[in-house]
Amino acid sequence: MTTTVANGVNVQALLDAREALKDAPEAAQFVWRASSTWRNGVHSTTTVKEFYGLGEERAHKSEAVFDADHPEVFAAEDNGVTPIEYLLVGLASCLTAGVASVAQNRGIQLRSVEATLEGAHDIRGILGVDPDVRNGFNDIKVTFHIDADASKQDIEALVAQSQKRSAVFDALTNPTNVTVDVA
């Protein structure tokens, strides 16, 4: 599709990849990695750099470092955001990337895309106060404010399609097998 829309997403490369991977499922297998180190208290540092994909080991241009801690109301030092808040970071950035990609593909020029996220969390679960309360979020609410050359209906369709193709939305809404080993 030839458009004059410039959202900065190389949709052609994504469409080419989709075509190329149709008959090469092995090349589509990626492994994302993170490594963490305990600092002190509930403070830890997690780094992300290397990953595997398209048949070989790869790396980001630079290493990213994420500090996680708990806020002072949890009697912690607040050296970083709470681990569960990283889930909101992941969801917000994934859905936003989806909105930009879908808009580019559909020829919709974006002017601004803002999202606010709220995760409702009953901490009685993690504190073991009540076994009927779950540890994780009870509900996550995402609100998008999008300014674009498109009707309200088209913008709603962008947001719906971005959820449909979002890795993090899927990871949060569907169960995933998690194995935790001690090496």
Binding site: V159, A160, K164, F169, T173, N174
Partner: peptide, 12 residues
């Protein structure tokens, strides 16, 4: 176990 993405399949 059911998906928590019900709202979006409604929207779509």
């Amino acid at each position: 176990l059911f998906s928590g993405g019900l709202r979006n399949v409604f929207s779509l």
